[in-house]
Simulated scan of single mutants.
Amino acid sequence: MMEIRKRSTPKIKSAHWVNPFRKSGYLSQNYDLYLFLLPALVCIIIFQYLPMYGVQIAFKNFNPLLGVTGSPWVGFEHFIRFVESPYFAEIVRNTLEISLYSLLVGFPAPLILALLLNQLPSIKYRRFIQTVTYAPYFISVVVIVGMLLIFLSPRSGLVNHFLIWLGFEPIHFMAKQELFSTIVVFSDVWQAAGWGAIIYLAALSAISPELHETAMIDGASKLQRIWHIDIPGIMPTVIILLIFNLGSLLSVGFEKIYLMQNSLNIARSEVIPTYVYKVGLQGGQYSFSTAVGVLNNVVNFVLIVAVNQVARKVSSTSLW
């Protein structure tokens, strides 16, 4: 009787986890790279994480003499005070108006500019237009506001001189409440569209030229190639940037709005960042202004998480 022996299946060894802190690990072999990373990491910890310690004054009645730890707790008193404030509805409305307006107009502008630049056949003209559109980004906000005040002046402004030449009456742009958000948004587009187009141009450069060559052989026009090749190719980049923009919906630019404010347009120009500055630094209500800022950041955090979840389900592209 022949004895049948069972063959034992060889055991597959599990992958060995390499501890980076071992002497032969990756960390010890590339310690110089981590040394280069260390200053940036220290700056992030000092300027981004350590200040979070002061967020607790939003839940306290902060007294500089008692310090952060010695000030008494008041819970959500400052949050309730802001929500019940008579200025709450007006401030939130102004903030949402400028933010949504900027999102609808300012977000597509760099994308459209990048698509148009990508279709220019001449590299010389493309570089010239890129330089012209990038340049306003490096102008100071104070200088931008000064230029707006000069160009839109009702007496000596270039825009009003052009309107008078066309037969219209001069307009005091900075005194018109209904024009404030338009001036802010379109000046932002003029200043930041060229710089924002850099990311889209980088994404467009990753698209294979063979796709365009094949489409041209099939007789596709430039518009068809943009619609069926360029836009789908950079759609993941567009979605990621849209998530970032929606996540900072209530964080409108403080400097420009504050510099453009006056007594005639204050009803439409008072937003959450300017209100926090006036109440917190000028009024000395540190706990109240911190509570308003925390509430603003919480709303932005909820928005970015919600938009990220929607983007992941719809397009399978998300931040995490």
Score class of each variant (00 low, 15 high):
P209T: 07
K256G: 06
R155P: 09
W195R: 06
L148Q: 13
G233A: 03
L259G: 10
K222D: 04
M174K: 07
W165C: 08
V159D: 04
I183Y: 09
V252T: 13
F244E: 07
T182W: 13
G167C: 00
P232V: 02
M216P: 02
F151R: 08
F168R: 10
F173Q: 07
H161M: 14
H172P: 03
I207E: 03
A206R: 07
I229P: 05
V252H: 09
A192C: 09
W195Q: 07
I240E: 00
M216H: 11
T237M: 05
H212S: 10
V141A: 15
I139H: 07
I144W: 11
G247R: 01
S187F: 01
I217C: 00
E178I: 05
V143P: 14
Q224I: 12
G247K: 00
D218E: 13
A215Y: 09
L241S: 02
S251L: 14
L149S: 14
V141I: 15
W195G: 07
P170G: 07
A192G: 11
N245K: 14
H161T: 12
P154N: 09
I234K: 06
A197N: 08
I239Y: 04
S208C: 04
E210V: 09
R155E: 15
L148I: 12
S248P: 09
F254I: 07
A220Q: 02
E210G: 04
I243T: 01
A197G: 06
G219D: 04
F162H: 01
I243Y: 01
